[in-house]
């Protein structure tokens, strides 16, 4: 068989598995978020549907069925094609990032080596940044096409916010790239078998986390959908499955940035001090990040727009630049 065709078939199988896992993961993340936020606010939270050990195990399925049966509404003056396309773009770009994240060390079965990333690209880190910059389109087009002033305001805000924080996000990763000397995520993970990158790049790690939160529009950076002033921002007019798709994109993005933070800074599937490398470490690290994000959502208020911009340009960007500069100088002095 044509070697390229074989590669494509293998990638297809891996993609389908990853997509199924991610979509199930998304459903249960919504349940986890509802329960965590409920505990923080001293409420009980969902505990009725399909109760197992006091957890509403079937709640996500009930939510999904409810979503499907809602009226699918398209505003009269909306740009219909783009209005329908935008949620798809949002979910598509959210899923695309998973093509390069290594999930497990390579396994050899019957002389055939399976790599646990869909594609081992030698520019994986840049690929992630590129996909991240494309993810703005879903929100912007969704907000614009609805022909609603609140949606448009939300879309404009999100463009300004994401473009601003993208700069520091990219710079926060440059330090790691200089330390590891490669753009391939597979190699970056392999290099961290003993010492994680966060030891060399603590500031880069913090800057990455803050900027990533801003990139996926979560509290305290959820201005594009600030309900107190913009109704629901870019998703005001969306209902039924289209709304669910935006919701899905948000949660998958949350999974993606926790996976990238774990992979780039915390050794990905590598355990501490090289203990038992495997996908379980990646999952544990991701869960910790996700819990922290939910904790932040439960406890922090939203930034004001001018505070957001000042923080991004006057605090994060100089810090990220200084981090890059210091890393470069130290590397030169060490003669690497």
């Amino acid at each position: 068989m044509d070697p390229l065709a074989l590669v494509i078939i293998e990638a297809l199988i891996k993609s389908i598995v990853v997509i199924i896992v991610l979509l199930t993961g998304f459903a249960y993340l919504t349940l986890m978020e509802r329960m965590v936020v409920a505990r923080i606010q001293v409420r009980v939270g969902p505990n009725r549907v399909g109760r197992v050990f006091g957890i509403a195990a079937l709640q996500p399925i009930a939510d999904a069925i409810k979503m499907i049966f809602k009226e699918d509404f398209i505003p009269a003056n909306a740009d219909k094609l783009i209005y329908v396309l935008a949620p798809g773009i949002a979910v598509g770009t959210a899923l695309l990032a998973w093509a390069v994240i290594p999930l497990n060390p390579p396994l050899t079965i019957f002389g055939y080596t399976i790599n646990f990333e869909i594609a081992n690209v030698n520019v994986a880190v840049l690929y992630l940044l590129a996909i991240g910059s494309l993810s703005i389109y879903g929100i912007v087009l969704g907000g614009w096409s609805a022909n609603n002033k609140y949606s448009l305001l939300g879309a404009l805000r999100s463009t300004a916010q994401m473009v601003s924080y993208e700069v520091s996000l990219g710079l926060s990763l440059v330090g790691v790239l200089m330390v590891s000397g490669t753009l391939s995520l597979t190699q970056i993970v392999q290099q961290q078998s003993m010492i994680w990158n966060v030891v060399w790049q603590p500031l880069g790690f913090v800057i990455y986390l803050v900027c990533a939160l801003a990139e996926i529009n979560r509290v305290p950076f959820d201005l594009p959908e600030a309900e107190t002033e913009l109704v629901a921002g870019y998703q005001t007019e969306y209902s039924s499955l289209k709304f669910a798709l935006f919701y899905m994109a948000e949660y998958i993005n949350m999974l993606t940035i926790s996976a990238i933070a774990s992979t780039v800074f915390l050794g990905g599937y590598q355990g501490p001090f090289g203990i038992l490398p495997g996908v379980h470490w990646l999952l544990i690290k991701m869960l910790i990040f996700i819990f922290i994000f939910m904790w932040i959502r439960g406890t922090l208020p939203r930034f004001r727009y001018d505070q957001l911009m000042r923080f991004g340009w006057q605090v994060l960007l100089p810090l990220a630049l200084a981090n890059t500069f210091v890393t470069a100088v130290v590397l030169v002095l060490l003669g690497k």
Binding site: V121, N122, V123, L126, Y127, L129, A130, I131, G132, S133, L134, I136, Y137, V140, W144, L152, A155, L156, T159, A160, V163, E166, L183
Partner: peptide, 26 residues
């Protein structure tokens, strides 16, 4: 040339064109 490919998407589609769309919407 995967580097050029990714740079193309990141710079043109992700940064420049997004600003175009921003201005068009404004």
């Amino acid at each position: 040339a995967p580097f050029i490919a990714v740079a193309q998407v990141m710079i043109y589609a992700g940064a420049i064109l997004i600003l175009f769309v921003f201005v068009i919407m404004l």
